[in-house]
Amino acid sequence: MTKIKSNVAVSESGFVFNPITGESYSVNPVAAEIFNMLKENKSFDEIEKELLEKYQVDAETLEKDFNDFISMLKQYQIIDENNEKEV
């Protein structure tokens, strides 16, 4: 399971600061929602269900975009990869 580092948070404006690396990011609303659901330890299935209900999007597209987003979070070291291995 993917887990976002505990000290990284997304603000109301979509601003993300990673205190470990010192980098700042901005995310769009869909990304912010996913970000917060990941923080709540929701699974992909749960996240997918919520988003499919809310947005005009099909499951394949959503899954592809979700994976792409996760890979970007990993690249930016926002996801705790060690944690991922443990689970």
């Binding site: 404006s13 601003f15 600061f17 700042s24």
Partner: peptide, 11 residues
């Protein structure tokens, strides 16, 4: 403060 940077860069 980073809040200021956030303000100018997001809004």
């Amino acid at each position: 403060d980073i809040k200021e940077f956030e303000q100018i860069s997001t809004y």
